[in-house]
Simulated assay, not measured.
Amino acid sequence: MEIMQIQVNGKERDVPAGTSVATLLRDLGLDGRMLVVELNRRIVRPPEIESAQLEAGDRVELVHFVGGG
């Protein structure tokens, strides 16, 4: 299995080649409905999360929604 390196919230991370954004979120134990995913400075919309593929050197930013009032 080929491994590639990406950045997640500024930290280097190794993932298998062909990893999708959805797979990354599952591996991190995160719910894509509760955060905003930015891939290389572009927002990944919820319908695109399953099909968005990661490539070596990609930068992913994950921003969690915070409730309150």
Rank of each mutant, 00 (worst) to 15 (best):
M4Q: 13
M4D: 09
M4I: 14
Q5P: 00
I6V: 13
I6A: 02
Q7C: 01
Q7Y: 03
V8P: 00
N9A: 02
N9D: 08
K11Y: 02
E12T: 05
R13A: 08
D14P: 01
D14H: 06
V15Q: 02
V15K: 03
A17E: 13
A17Q: 11
T19P: 01
S20Y: 04
S20L: 07
V21I: 14
T23I: 05
L24M: 01
L25Q: 03
L25S: 04
D27Y: 01
D27P: 01
L28M: 11
L28G: 03
G29H: 04
G29L: 07
D31Y: 05
G32K: 03
G32P: 08
G32A: 02
R33K: 05
M34H: 13
M34W: 06
M34L: 11
L35G: 10
V36H: 11
V37D: 07
V37E: 09
V37R: 05
E38S: 11
E38K: 12
E38F: 06
L39T: 02
L39Q: 06
L39I: 03
N40Y: 07
I43M: 14
I43T: 14
I43L: 15
I43W: 10
V44R: 12
V44G: 09
V44N: 10
R45D: 07
R45G: 08
R45P: 00
P47K: 14
E48R: 10
E48M: 13
E48P: 04
I49A: 12
E50K: 15
E50T: 10
E50Q: 15
S51W: 05
S51M: 09
S51E: 13
S51L: 11
A52D: 10
A52V: 12
Q53Y: 02
Q53G: 06
L54V: 10
L54P: 09
L54Q: 05
E55F: 06
G57E: 13
D58E: 11
D58Q: 07
V60E: 03
L62G: 03
V63N: 05
